[in-house]
């Protein structure tokens, strides 16, 4: 079913909106949540929370692309759940690994002098990502937006794990330099 038809179902307050969303995007959202939570039950709950949130937000919202809209909601629920459930660097899954990797982009993790406005940081990261090459940008988003394991990114992009790891490593280094230049870390 087309996205617009699914959104119509939400606007009509039809129960079928949820079943059709789950049918088309259930596995996709579950994978996003699982990559972060590393737990099937948590992932399932994040997906259910996502459907509930989507139900509450439509109407008024009318997202044109459901994949990013739902993925964004799922990702945030999963990160919140991860924060609640896991002490830092504990537990399995991709989240602790991704956080470790992103730590490299930060010169001083606890420096009050570098209090960063979230919006300013978001704009800087978005601008940075837009300046990357296609390959760098896709690998970066796959790893740090979707938290997909390196092995799977390599397979999906048709390159070796070595290349993916190297590209990600160098992109993180670039991000670190960029954030420093912007005075954000």
């Amino acid at each position: 079913m087309e996205d617009s038809a699914i959104v119509d179902l939400y606007w009509q307050r039809s129960d079928r909106a949820i079943s059709e969303t789950d049918r088309k995007y259930g596995r996709y959202c579950h994978t996003i949540a699982y990559n972060i939570c590393a737990d099937n039950e948590d992932a399932e709950e994040c997906v259910n929370d996502t459907w509930f949130s989507a139900w509450n937000s439509m109407p008024d919202k009318r997202p044109s692309i459901l994949s990013t809209f739902l993925g964004y909601i799922t990702r945030n629920f999963a990160i919140d759940r991860f924060k609640l459930k896991n002490a830092r660097k504990r537990g399995g899954g991709e989240m602790p690994l991704a956080l470790d990797e992103l730590e490299e982009c930060i010169s001083s993790p606890v420096d009050p002098a570098h209090e960063v406005e979230q919006k300013e940081l978001e704009s800087a990261v978005d601008a940075f990502v837009r300046g990357l090459s296609d390959t760098e940008r896709r690998m970066f988003i796959a790893r740090y937006w979707f938290l997909i394991p390196v092995a799977e990114i390599s397979e999906r992009m048709g390159c070796s794990q070595s290349k993916t790891k190297t590209t990600l490593y160098r992109t993180r280094n670039k991000l670190r330099t960029y954030l420093q230049e912007e005075g954000l870390c």
Partner: peptide
């Protein structure tokens, strides 16, 4: 304070 979770959240935007 900028930490990796904050950065990860920013990537979400």
């Amino acid at each position: 304070m900028l930490d990796s979770i904050t950065l990860l959240c920013a990537v979400g935007e």
